[in-house]
Simulated scan of single mutants.
Amino acid sequence: MQHTYASRPYAAITAIGGYVPQKRRTNFDLEQVCDTSNEWIIKRTGIKERRILDKDLATSDMAVMAIQDLCLRYEKNLADIEAILVATSTPDVMMPATANIIARKLALKNVWAFDMNAACSGFLYALDMGASLIESGRYKNVLVVGADNISAFVDIKDRSTNILFGDGAGVVWLEPSSENGIIDAFMQSNGDGREFLNIEGGGSLYPANNGLIEVEKKYIRQDGKVVFKQAIQSMSDACNQVLSRNNMRIDQVNWLVPHQANKRIIDAVGKEINIPEGRTLSNIEYLGNTIAATIPLCIWENIKRIQKGDLLMLTAFGAGFSWGASLLRWAI
């Protein structure tokens, strides 16, 4: 079924910003703390280093710096912001929402601000929600943030996770457009993957009572083989669903921007959907998996390669399991 949206405006990305910490954790650093090697990590993941946030900073700090970067680059006025949607699995605190904290740090007094947790799929989920706010006509300036301080939840001695994850934040500004913007989105979740990728400690089931959470529940854990297979299948299916229901072909897509989970997953998804060679954007080599921040950071770092009017396919897969794809016409 082809979707037509003549009756509503597109939600267009009119500005983008990003922030990554200065501190680097290289493969050689990891060789010192666990049984691994630079060669093995590169072969398995394509990652050489990842960024690590300072201990006295939190997710909101990275988000604020990404928003400030956006405003500086695109001469945007913070006072115009009407809503802030923050996709994160690593909020500053259990409550209030990290989006509230960001609003305070930016001195915004009257803004609708809330968090969304869909793990590595979070940015796409929040982008779809932000687009809906624009399409409804109720909002004209919406910030969608993807930010995670995931290193705070990584067991430095666990080589199944310490090789993958890094910290960062990316943000986009959404506004109405009559021409370019988000064409369609396909989001899914089934709850079948809870045991294969999770951080169990700190919630209401395993609360942080006086800081005494069982060690194995404090950190992110994953079954790499299960996640690997599901990620490829789910992201590929989501991309094909979006293309099919909009009567489009993959060769019409200028850029595939996949979640930066693993270089082998990125390559496999590209192969599964038959995207032409050279049209997949990636920055995993030096940032690793930054959870909800990977897609906006990947676009931000490759911004000079993307032209106004280009067709972008975004796709992600995360804990839950959750996954999806978004098709958009670039408006900058």
Rank of each mutant, 00 (worst) to 15 (best):
152 A>C: 08
153 F>C: 08
155 D>P: 02
158 D>Y: 02
158 D>V: 00
160 S>Y: 06
160 S>A: 12
162 N>I: 01
163 I>H: 02
163 I>S: 09
164 L>P: 02
165 F>Q: 05
165 F>Y: 13
165 F>H: 06
166 G>H: 04
167 D>R: 12
169 A>L: 10
169 A>E: 09
171 V>M: 11
172 V>S: 10
172 V>G: 09
173 W>Q: 13
175 E>D: 08
177 S>G: 03
177 S>Y: 03
178 S>P: 06
179 E>V: 06
179 E>D: 15
180 N>G: 05
180 N>R: 10
183 I>Q: 08
184 D>C: 03
185 A>I: 03
190 N>R: 06
191 G>K: 11
192 D>V: 12
192 D>M: 15
192 D>G: 11
193 G>Q: 12
193 G>R: 08
195 E>F: 13
195 E>N: 15
196 F>R: 09
196 F>K: 12
197 L>A: 11
198 N>G: 08
198 N>C: 14
198 N>P: 06
199 I>G: 03
202 G>N: 02
202 G>H: 00
203 G>V: 07
204 S>P: 00
205 L>C: 11
207 P>S: 00
207 P>M: 00
207 P>E: 01
208 A>L: 01
209 N>I: 05
211 G>A: 00
213 I>D: 02
214 E>S: 11
215 V>G: 07
215 V>C: 08
216 E>N: 12
218 K>W: 01
218 K>Q: 14
218 K>V: 03
221 R>T: 15
222 Q>F: 12
223 D>I: 15
223 D>F: 14
225 K>Q: 13
225 K>S: 13
226 V>T: 15
227 V>R: 06
227 V>W: 07
228 F>D: 08
231 A>N: 09
231 A>T: 06
